[in-house]
Amino acid sequence: MSVMNDWFSLFIQVLDKLPITLFMLLISLVCSLVLGVAIAIVRIKRFTVLYQIATFYLSFCRSTPLLVQLFLVYFGLPQLLLAFQIDINSLDRMIFVLISLSLHNAAYLSEVVRSAYLAVGEDQFEAAYSVGMTYTQALWRVVLPQAFVLSLPNLGNNIIELLKDTSLAFTIGIIDIMGQVRIILGNNHGIGMFEIYVVISLIYWGTCILIEMVISTLEKVLKKGKVSLSKS
């Protein structure tokens, strides 16, 4: 009985910090989505200078570990800005986590967006132009809604990856579910490692399953009249 109680109380203790994890996931997802779309468009339209910058940024973000980027932002950025008389040392550390997660994920998302955008096809743009729409109108009314649906499988992958990336935030002292696990272990002097890591695995796993369910529901709802003739 007491064994069950131990497991249960571990679950409760770790779950208590799930909102922090989800908060990081949600905020950095929204920020990286906006930035990712912007980068994708810059790269598709090949705006000369911006294109170079975006490509450089993409290369950096995808070729260095997230942990290194997090440390760069948390330890390096304040030092750099101090040289310009800007003091950001007093900022909440959560801000640094959100910045690095958003910047990192935007690089990956921009490629998700770019492939979906290209998959929609030039013919949809031409149709929009032919009825008198501007590029921006064509983008928002016709192309992005279709690109969004096409990107859902990859987007789902990306969100799950981002959820797991949030587990690095504990390294700079954020008490998310991973941070909570470290605290519990510290209090127990390292006893009960097996139980606690099983518990946190299940929590990550369960959250991922929920995300997958949301994505597949979205896919079903948004496919609008898409029918496969070969299936009938």
Partner: peptide, 16 residues
């Protein structure tokens, strides 16, 4: 473009 309109060979309807 607002004074013209086009009918395309491959229809180019808005799929969404």
């Amino acid at each position: 473009r607002r004074r013209t309109a086009m009918v395309f060979q491959h229809y180019n309807l808005f799929e969404n």
